[in-house]
Design a protein around this nucleic acid. Structure first.
Lengths: 203, 203
DNA sequence: TACATTGATGACTGTCACTGACATCAGGGA
DNA sequence: TCCCTGATGTCAGTGACAGTCATCAATGTA
């Protein structure tokens, strides 16, 4: 199918192009929109694709499965998390290292992103299949963090314990950040939750 | 379809019964067997059902989806976990309460169960979809524990933090328990990992 | 200018997980 | 005896997902 795209900024003439660019991003936006209105299960992949002038087959060329359209791009977040980890001072304790990672994770979600995150999360909350995927991604994050910790010389089970605790703290902090009426930044909340974790283990 | 069942203990005569009993258990055993040999994705639900003389439709009457055949029965485990939690002394700290829960969770997996658990886990490890489901179940456990903790008067985010930490400790301990050459009981390992968690927070 | 190559897509086909609706039939109770 | 219930079979779908081949703009190359 040929698409007509109007280039209004660059050119003043309408040009005929084979495909409107940004197929992946359009699919993601349309999917979130449809999931939020009709619900995840009530939306078919064909509908998502058609709503942006593409076919179902193309949807699956961009996303490995229907749920993934909501999670594509997490790699960047993982990189941010790991980046903060590598920036930690060499003599930092495992939990301090995790604290650094949490800081850069917080920076990855500035307050402008809150409304979008809220909308996205409300879709995920309503569907167990999406929650599964989210938990899987968080678990993957923990695995990566544990690996990085081991590379820093942290042994087992401490590395995995610290990594999973970091993922847990992030999860709790994120849920709080999303909450209606919450004004603090994600980094602030995360640092508070991490402090609570220390209190928990050593009252 | 009519099944011929030989009742060897109760009667000495063969009796004709409408259905061989224990359909669910037979399906679970057959599924694990097939998943272990052919692989999860290479096994169809129809094959599992047919291998025990049932139809695919019946499979889905017992299990909500294909993956669930490997996870059905987790409720008992959750109850065991929660049971230990309720048995904890009233003045115990959140982490001590979690320690009690971990103890009864350990008792739920006696050493005889180790070979079975190993086989099951090796199937799960090979398939991301099954890992998702496992993580989801563990997350569900944490939610239930957090709820019970809150009922004991523990506030947030401490309740969720303690609950998720408990789930994490269990997960790490279980993975270690499964490991080839590991001789300690699950409860012993869990108690050790929990101790490591305390160390992590206060070195 | 002509031609080959590449990359993103459409079109078509098939498999399989999962569901709804209805039929069947043994066993147990009224 | 009769009716009811529960576990199952049968059948006909829907929708997620994959394999394969065709299409065609853009780009490079002779």
């Amino acid at each position: 199918m040929y698409m007509v795209m109007t280039v209004t900024v660059i050119n003043t003439i309408d040009v005929m192009v084979r495909w409107e660019p940004g197929a992946r991003e359009r699919l993601q936006a349309a999917a979130l929109e449809l999931f939020a209105t009709r619900g995840f299960e009530q939306t078919t992949t064909a509908e998502i694709a058609q709503s942006v002038g593409l076919t179902e087959r193309t949807f699956f060329r961009h996303f490995s499965d229907k749920r993934e359209v909501l999670f594509y791009g997490q790699d960047q977040f993982l990189q941010a998390f790991l980046g903060g980890l590598h920036a930690a001072p060499p003599d930092a304790s495992p939990l301090e290292v995790v604290g650094c990672a949490l800081d850069s994770a917080g920076a990855f979600f500035p307050d402008e992103r809150r409304p979008y995150s809220r909308m996205r999360q409300s879709v995920i909350e309503k569907n167990p299949a999406l929650q599964e995927r989210e938990q899987h991604k968080l678990a993957g994050l923990a695995v990566a963090v544990a690996e990085a910790l081991r590379a820093r010389g942290v042994g087992e089970p401490t590395a995995t314990l610290a990594a999973e605790s970091g993922a847990t703290v992030f999860g709790i902090a994120f849920a709080q950040w999303i909450r209606e009426g919450e004004a603090r930044s994600l980094a602030d909340i995360a640092s508070h939750v991490l402090h609570e974790l220390r209190n928990l283990a050593s009252p």
